[in-house]
Amino acid sequence: MKKFHMHKQILATIGLCGLLLAAPASAQLRIGQPSGFTGSVAAGVKENTEGAKLYFDAVNARGGINGQKIELISVDDKFDPKVTVEVARELITSKGVLALFLNRGTPHSQALLPLLAEHKVPLVGPSTGAMVLHEPVNPWVFNVRATYQREAAKAVEHLASIGITRIAVLTTDDTFGADGAEGALKGFAEAQLKPVLLEKFPRDKPVFTELAKGVHGSNAQAVMVIGSAGNTANAVKAIRAAGSRAQAVTLSNNASEGFIKLLGDHARGVIVTQVFPNERSVAYGLIKEAQDLAKAKGMPGVSPAMMEGFAAAKVVAEGLRRAGPKPTPAALRDALEGLRNYDLGGLSVSYSPTNHTGLDFADLSIVDASGKFRR
C-alpha cells in the first residue's frame, strides 16, 4: 500500500512539473537591452539602466501591467556593433522579448535595423540621437530623445552668442561622429562661422597627442569633442596637457556622473549638452517622480543619463499598457505609434506614421566645482 501511495505521489509530482513546464514562461513582459556594459561607454550605460529599472521596479511593485511584470533582460554587447546584433538576435529568438530597448551607440543601432525588420520587433528609446533613426522614419524605431544634430548646432550657436568664434571640432571616425559633425556644421553656418579645426579620431584606442597639439596650435577658444565618454575624457586631458585652455564641449551621450569621474581634475567648466530637463528641477513632474523613487531606494539622486533611461522606460511601459493583456511585438509597435501627447511629466511625447522622434528638448549644462551638472 505504501508503495502504491508513493507511486501516486511521484505521478502527481511529474504531472505538476509537466504543467509548470507547459505554462507560459512566468508570464513576464520581457524587454531586451543589448548595450555596452563594458568598454568606453559603460559608465553612461549603467546609469541609463539604473534609471530604467527605477521606473520598471515601481511599475512592478504596483502589480505590473495587466497583471504581468516587466522583466528587463540586459546583455553586454561590449560596445561592438557585431556583438550587438548577435546578442539582440538571441534576445528575440531565445528570450522572446517584446522589444529591444535603450541600446547605446549609433553604428550599433544602425546594425540592428535589418534585424528589427526581419523579426518585426520594435526598438524603443535607443540611447543615441542619430539622425538616421529619425529620417527617414523607420516603422520599428521609436526615439525618445532629441537628435545629436540639434544638440551640436545648439552648442555652436551658444558659443557664438557669447563671443566665442574660434571653435575646433574633434569627432570619432564613425557614423555617430559624422552625424554630430553635420549638426555642428549647421550651427557654424547659422552663426556664419567655420571651424578652425575639424579632425577625426579612431573609435578604438585613439591617441590624442597630435590632435591636442593641433587644437593648441589653432588658438581655439573652444573645442567640441564628439566621442564616447572614455575617449572624450582622454581628449580633454591631452588638450590640457598640450597647453590649450579652450572651453571643452561635448554632447549628451556623455551626460553621466561616470563621465565626470573620468575627467577627474579636468571636469570643472566642461559644457555638456542635455536632452532632458535639469535633473534637480522638481517643477517637472518627470523629474520629481524619478527623484522620489530614487530617494525611496536610498539613492542620492538622479543623473541626466538616469533620466534618459527613466523616460524611455515610461514610454515602453505605456506602450505595453495600450498593447493589451497579451501583447505581441507588432501590437506594441502599433500601440506606440498611436501615442499622442502622452505626458511624461512636463514633457509630451507623440508618435505618428510620419514621426518617430518623440522629444525635441535640448539644453546646455556646465560641470561645476563640485562635479555636478549646472544649467
Rank of each mutant, 00 (worst) to 15 (best):
T165E: 15
T165G: 15
R166L: 13
R166A: 07
R166H: 12
R166T: 05
A168T: 07
A168E: 07
T171R: 13
T171N: 10
T172V: 15
T172L: 11
D174Q: 10
D174R: 15
T175P: 14
T175C: 09
T175E: 07
F176K: 05
F176C: 04
F176L: 08
F176E: 10
G177E: 13
G177C: 09
A178G: 15
A178K: 10
D179S: 14
G180E: 05
G180I: 02
A181L: 12
G183Y: 09
A184W: 02
A184Y: 02
K186L: 10
K186P: 08
F188Y: 11
F188L: 08
A189M: 08
A189S: 03
A189K: 15
A189W: 04
A189Y: 08
E190T: 11
Q192E: 14
Q192L: 09
L193F: 09
L193Q: 08
K194I: 12
P195N: 11
P195I: 03
P195M: 12
V196L: 04
V196Y: 09
V196M: 13
L197N: 03
L197I: 05
L197F: 03
L198C: 08
E199F: 01
K200A: 13
F201Q: 01
R203A: 14
R203K: 06
D204C: 06
K205N: 15
K205Q: 06
V207W: 08
V207H: 13
V207M: 09
E210Y: 06
A212E: 00
A212M: 05
A212F: 00
G214Y: 03
G214A: 12
V215Y: 02
V215D: 03
V215M: 01
V215H: 00
V215L: 02
H216N: 09
H216S: 02
G217K: 06
G217M: 04
S218R: 03
A220F: 01
Q221S: 02
Q221F: 01
Q221K: 00
A222K: 00
A222Y: 02
V223T: 05
V223D: 02
M224C: 06
M224A: 07
V225D: 00
I226K: 00
G227Q: 00
G227I: 01
